[in-house]
Design a protein around this nucleic acid. Structure first.
Lengths: 199, 199
DNA sequence: CGATACACCTACTAACTGGTAGGTGTATCT
DNA sequence: AGATACACCTACCAGTTAGTAGGTGTATCG
């Protein structure tokens, strides 16, 4: 049975979302799950390895799966990006409460990236992959003539990723889904206009 | 002499920038300063009060002082915003190393906002003030005809703040000042074009 | 049936960490 | 000179927390 391992992973992921990795207490989590310390250390050699497992087994598939839809969107990049933004608004940042917790990936980057190489490498990989997928899609859009030839694809790629992270940051600071939606709204407008400049 | 208090405040600010508030160890900081526990608890009743003092006495004046320049810029809002963005590039995010540490304000918001009301209120106040100042300036720009009348001032305000935070987030994830500058570059372009739409 | 492997449990510890109690030295005021 | 206030120090404590040692029960395999 891997049910115990899954429980451990999911419960710690939730706790980490609220308290951060350093603030998350394995004792408290396992106590609430009515699982013992022995079980924890049966599946994970230490706390940090559990952290890595959460990144690799929960965060990575979730975020890369989301951005994969850009590459595969039938009606082009722009619609692909707009579809993802819609998902952020409807599935990830769904209320003031979820806005207050922010983006799990962003949270972990902010906290652990400067402190631990293992975390940094794994988290940077996710961002780098998102960047690669989005850049590829934008390049394809340029080649197909949907986007202007003079578009600085690399900068635009980073700007889109940054604005999304920024929306989460401001949403968290103000504990407001409304603010999150306003920011994403302007981003949607900007992304839509990328295409029109080719005319 | 308040020199000791200042030392305590500054050293803990630096430590917090790297480790976060929870990860910052007062023991380690005072040891490195060759200041004793007694001195610490002479000036601050507990760790969290020190944290609040850092926000109020270091973070708040620094960030509000920066944004006050927008309100007062002689050649209008747009130039004011561009001046601030230039400052971020030249004074705050100055190298890959400083990019890796991120924005102290953003870091603290991400970490402590959901965990402690005292932090949340103080940090939200800073963001709310930045928002108020920027919104006022943009409104003035619209009234003076420098910006189009149809501009959704509130959304634009939040978008600018978000993009800056996003630039810090991506810069931190990639430990790259170049990425930070690319994102700010696109934001500069976008901000400049706000004015042209009024023509 | 004995052996092996797996999944898990109980009890413990060593190190850390925020915080406290009570004292000392020095300057200032009266 | 005595009293008071301030700035700071030393030694200690109590709670927490990651991590460990060693054991138990059960299923499977030969």
């Amino acid at each position: 049975m891997k049910a115990t391992r899954e429980e451990l992973l999911n419960a710690h992921f939730k706790a980490m979302h609220l308290h951060g990795f350093q603030g998350m207490r394995t004792d408290k989590v396992i106590q609430e799950l009515s699982i013992t310390k022995g079980a924890f250390y049966h599946y994970f050699p230490d706390k940090i390895t559990l952290g890595y497992a959460i990144v690799e087994e929960i965060l990575r598939p979730q975020y890369l799966g989301l951005w994969k839809t850009v590459e595969q969107h039938p009606s082009g990049v722009i619609d692909g990006i707009l579809a993802i933004l819609a998902q952020f608004k409807s599935k990830i940042c769904t209320s003031d409460e979820s806005a207050a917790l922010g983006c799990p990936l962003n949270n972990l980057i902010q906290e652990m990236s400067p402190l631990d190489e293992g975390f940094h490498n794994r988290l940077q990989f996710i961002i780098a992959e998102e960047r690669r997928m989005l850049r590829q899609s934008l390049k394809a859009g340029v080649q197909q003539g949907h986007l202007p030839a003079h578009l600085v694809v690399d900068d635009v790629t980073l700007f889109i990723l940054a604005s999304i992270q920024g929306a989460f940051a401001i949403g968290k600071a103000l504990k407001s889904k409304t603010a999150f939606d306003q920011i994403i709204g302007i981003l949607e407008l900007w992304v839509s206009q990328l295409a029109k400049q080719s005319a």
